[in-house]
Design a protein around this nucleic acid. Sequence first.
DNA 1: AAAAATTTGCAACTAAGTTATAAAATGCTA
DNA 2: TAGCATTTTATAACTTAGTTGCAAATTTTT
Lengths: 143, 143
Amino acid sequence: MNDRCNFSEVLARRLLRPTPLRLKVLETLGSEDRPWQAREILEAIRAGRPVNKVSIYRILDDLTRLGLVRTVSSEGGPAYYELACEHHPPHPHFQCQACGALQCLEPVPLERVWQELKGPLGNRVDRLEIRMAGLCHKCRDIT
Amino acid sequence: MNDRCNFSEVLARRLLRPTPLRLKVLETLGSEDRPWQAREILEAIRAGRPVNKVSIYRILDDLTRLGLVRTVSSEGGPAYYELACEHHPPHPHFQCQACGALQCLEPVPLERVWQELKGPLGNRVDRLEIRMAGLCHKCRDIT
DNA sequence: AAAAATTTGCAACTAAGTTATAAAATGCTA
DNA sequence: TAGCATTTTATAACTTAGTTGCAAATTTTT
């Protein structure tokens, strides 16, 4: 999916060294158009080399803090992570309640909703997360 | 907040006995206009009598399955629960990234967004969760 | 009141994520 | 390029949220 980002350049520009492990994490996240669990990333990387889970969590934290990665929360489950580069702007997600799979949906124009929500409360709003839940087309076909 | 629901009637109508503990859980959820963590509920009830956490989780599960309670997921944290009675329809939430507090926002008209999102994917959509994150007015004032 | 069913408690467990600290790797300066 | 400082990764131990299996207690039914 994401062959278009030069990760090591991006990392270097952002005060984080482009180590093999960091690049591997970014590469993994970019390899499919869906959010990943920390554990999935760990297992994917372990298929090729030994890694410790703490390193994965730390790298995901760092990348998130720098804005290269976005976290997506899931219904009762663990956190998911996705790339936050210019080719992957914020967007809603769909989670299947049967198989648990999390899909990325197309961005939708939310200016109106956004304005309506942020207005009256005096809160400073930084992020908006939209998650739909239901039965995905695969699980729908099966049953 | 919620003096308007006759919980034990509601429970009885729904195949769940109105036990003191179940009523206490509902009463606690209804006592403030905000979602509660399981742990908060546990502690609130323990102030008045001994309870086991497993009972709380089980009761919350049962009530959620019956549609009397809704779960609200939070940024990286534990699950939250809120009443789902007719006086408290689905609505967006705001979570402060500084103090972690979760507020209930007013329901917004989402038909347009909903249609736009559910359309092309072939998924059956049952629920829509909207969460905003940022800095709440209290934390804003402090800093 | 006895039997059956439901509800709650208790202990042990799992999974996600964190913390503290040590080891390894990398970059920098002489 | 050797030595020192800094950054990155590993390891082990821990915390917190939530679950599971089963026993005790309570309630309902007969």
